[in-house]
Design a protein around this nucleic acid. Structure first.
Lengths: 222, 222
DNA sequence: CAATGTGAAGTACTTCACAGCC
DNA sequence: GGCTGTGAAGTACTTCACATTG
């Protein structure tokens, strides 16, 4: 059951961190730890204790003063607050290497993100199967989205097909897109898009490495 | 050749955006566009024009007033500033589905990120090949890292092996880790880590979808 | 008495607005 | 005339510090 958040605006950064908290809490659960304070939880996530408490406070009071948080309770509180406490069927467009890896990604299923059907434009691929799914043509998308009330579409096409895939998803009635292709896409205001682009992170790592090296050389004047 | 940045501190967010700018600039280049102003570039990246100009200003003056930026020039200026204008050899630990997809990921090679060798702990896998690479045992890591002066390691193991993989990389002398496994890892201060975790983004999409729905119901009082 | 929940203070990032230049 | 480069103003997020409570 969904409980509305206490506060009106919640930072994007908070939502992303909450996902991390769940990840760490689940690993604590596997180790049979059922109580945790904000500080150790925060440390495992690479943030401050006060950050954890503030993030949670946007949604309610889930802790016990002087004690901490019950792991099981807190996982449920966060997943319920975010809306990830039930199944989310999804469709995937673009059955290349990356697409196949995503289809097979075990973690999805365990967290309620279930791929319902997969699609590709390539006539060579249509009709064949990948990890037990029949590869369908784009025309088959809209009825499946409607029938299963699917709201999330995954794009794993090559960059030059990403916009077409996005357009197809939008006209099929999807409301959010997870884009793995290294291309920006244009969609109506009302559609939510997230980009999974590890080049951003690789660039960031390289910059950090280079910065480290140069700061060793010139640690003299300003 | 590397030019040091004009300013001392540069926001992480700026670095990540610069990677996006390069991506969009490269697609402009493919369309034979060789001049672009901050505004249209910014729109394609989903940010403000002033943001683009400020981000670039951290590193120098690359534009022509009244005109805009030369696409080719700007790509070079950004890649040089970040240190991604030359090859970065990498190693990969964990040859499962995801690992194989990453090895085969064509974009890496095109951007100078070259996988040099791949490793796995599973005796069943060691000695076999994946996409033309022989799967090596962890013991072989340190000498290869040293020989090729490798600084970046990719972790694509299952979550319960991620810490072991990270420890192996650190003791082999790596200085940055790109972690695809859905587990937090502990490393010394001096090691840079970036997490590629699309659950964060999926959670964020779900929250946006749910928020949209509820805000339609209660658009009355505060 | 230990750890939460939270206003208030601090910091970091973004946008504005316009002078400077092509 | 149009667009860059940039201080100054604004906004958003993070951390502090402490009153509160099991």
């Amino acid at each position: 059951m969904y409980t509305p958040p206490k506060s009106k605006h919640i930072p994007q950064a908070t939502i992303k961190r909450l996902a991390t908290y769940v990840q760490v809490l689940e690993s604590l659960q596997r180790d049979n730890i059922d109580l945790v304070a904000s500080r150790p939880l925060a440390e495992a996530c690479g943030v401050q204790g006060s950050q954890v408490r503030k993030d949670l406070a946007y949604f309610g009071e889930f802790g016990i003063r002087g004690v901490g948080y019950q792991v099981k309770n807190l996982i449920l509180a966060i997943t319920t607050s975010l809306g990830v406490d039930h199944e989310w069927p999804m469709v995937l467009l673009g059955v290349g290497n990356l697409g196949r890896a995503i289809i097979n990604h075990i973690g999805f299923h365990a967290h309620g993100f279930r791929i319902q059907a997969i699609f590709d434009c390539d006539p060579e691929k249509i009709g064949k199967t990948a990890h037990g799914f029949e590869i369908l043509p784009p025309e088959a998308l809209a009825p499946i989205v409607a029938m299963h009330k699917i709201e999330i579409g995954i794009v794993t096409t090559k960059p030059n097909s990403a916009q077409l895939a996005a357009d197809t998803l939008v006209s099929a009635g999807i409301s959010a897109i997870l884009n793995f292709s290294p291309a920006r896409i244009k969609v109506p205001e009302s559609i939510h898009v997230e980009y999974v682009d590890f080049f951003r992170q690789l660039y960031s790592l390289v910059f950090d490495i280079v910065r480290d090296k140069t700061s060793v050389w010139d640690d003299n004047d300003s």
